[in-house]
Simulated scan of single mutants.
Amino acid sequence: MTFAVTPVSGVLPSGALGAVRPTEVADPASGAQFASVLGSIDSLQQLQSTSTDLALRAVTGDLDDVHDYTIASAQASTALELTAAVRNKAVEAFTEIMRMQA
Rank of each mutant, 00 (worst) to 15 (best):
V59N: 12
G61K: 02
S40P: 01
N88K: 01
S40D: 10
V59R: 07
F94P: 00
A102P: 03
I97C: 10
L12M: 02
R87W: 09
T70V: 13
K89L: 10
D42Q: 07
A74L: 13
V25Y: 03
H67T: 05
Q101P: 01
G10T: 09
G39W: 02
A4P: 01
A93T: 13
A35S: 06
S30T: 15
A16D: 00
F94W: 10
I71E: 02
I41V: 13
L54Y: 06
V37E: 00
G15T: 06
G18T: 14
L12F: 09
Q45H: 12
L44G: 01
S43I: 04
D62E: 15
L47Y: 02
I97G: 04
D68E: 10
V59D: 03
L17A: 03
F34S: 15
S14P: 01
S43T: 08
T50H: 04
S9A: 03
L47D: 00
F34W: 13
Q75N: 13
D27A: 04
L63A: 14
I41N: 13
R99T: 15
T60K: 03
E92G: 01
F3C: 12
L17Q: 01
P13S: 13
T60H: 07
V66E: 14
M1A: 15
L82Q: 09
E96S: 12
I41Y: 07
S9C: 12
A102K: 12
L82E: 01
I41A: 14
L47V: 03
T95S: 05
F3H: 10
Y69P: 00
A85M: 05
S40W: 12
A90Y: 10
